[in-house]
Amino acid sequence: MIHEPRRADSNVAGGSDAGRRLSEGGLNLKPSGRVHVPDSLDAGSPGRAVGEASVADPVFSCRDVSVFYGAKQALKGVTIDVARRQVLAAIGPSGCGKSTFLRCLNRMNDTIPGARVTGTITLDGRDIYSKRQDVAQLRARIGMVFQKPNPFPKSIYDNVAYGPRIHKLTRSRTDLDELVFTSLARAGLWDEVKDRLGSLAIGLSGGQQQRLCIARALAVQPEVILMDEPCSALDPIATAHVEDLIEQLRASYAIVIVTHSMQQAARVSQRTAYFYMGQLIEVGDTDRVFTNPQHRLTEDYITGRFG
C-alpha cells in the first residue's frame, strides 16, 4: 500500500527549497510495502522517511528540520507532524537524534552553545523559530519532563508552584494552592505527598520525584508535554505509574516521548517515529510500525538485530 505522506508539506514550506526537495523526494515505495534503501545514509537527504509523516490539524509541524552542534549535524532534514491528544514515541539507538528532535520542539537547543537549527517548526501554525517568538513564552506552553528526575532544591509545594509563580498564573494564594493541588493530583502524587508539601522534594523516591516533575510541568498549563526518556531512571513499578499517567494525560495533551524501550513505545504511544543516525527513517501508527515495518532499518531495529 502506498501512502502519500507529504502532500500537505508544500503549503507549509511554501515555495522554499525544502518544499521542493520534499515533493521530489526520491521515495521508492513498492507495492509490497517494503522499501529499497541504499546501504549508506548520506547526510543532507531529507524527506526520505517512510510512512505517514503528516496528520490533519497538527500541533507541531516540522519541515526539513536539521540541527547542527558546531560542525556536527545531529539531525538531518526531519519532516514530521505531531497530532493532538495523541502520544508520539520517538525511538532509535543512542545518538540517533531522537532527543535532539525533542529539544527542537521547545527550543531547548538554544541553551547549548554552538547549536543551530534549520528548517521550520510551527506550533499551531506559528513559526516557533521566528524572531518575534518569545522563547520563555513558548516554553511555558510546552511542558518538559527530563530523563533524570530533577526537582529544584525546594519544597514539594514550591517545586509545583515555581512555574505559576514566575508566570503569575494565579492571583491569590488560594488560587495557587488550588493549582498546585490539582497538578499534584493529575500527576497521581497527591495522596502520597499531601501531608508533607513543605518538605524537600529530594526526600521523595525517584518515581515520586519524576511524577513531581510532571506535576511541575502540568502546573504551567501547557498544551504539549515533551518527555525525554522519563522512565530510564525508574524501577518497573514507578515506570508503570508514569505510563498510566501518560495514558490519562493523553486525553488533554499532545505528548511526545523519547524512549529507549520499544515495549514502552508500543504500550504508551499511538504513533511511532524511528530515528537512525540523525534521520527520521519511518513514522506511522504504532501498531503498524511494530507489526509491519516498511523500512528495512526499522525492521532490523524492532526485531532486535541491532541497537
Binding site: 521547545n106 531547548m108 541553551t111 520563555a136 513564552q137 513558548l138 516554553r139 511555558a140 506552553r141 510546552i142 511542558g143 518538559m144 527530563f146 530523563q147 533524570k148 530533577n150 529544584f152 515555581y162 512555574g163 514566575i166 508566570h167 516533575c213 511541575r216 510541568a217 504551567v220
Partner: peptide, 12 residues
C-alpha cells in the same frame, strides 16, 4: 538538568 527544567517551565 536543573537549569533546563527551569528553562523548560518558561523561565527567563
Amino acid at each position: 538538568v536543573l537549569k533546563e527544567s527551569g528553562y523548560g517551565l518558561g523561565a527567563t
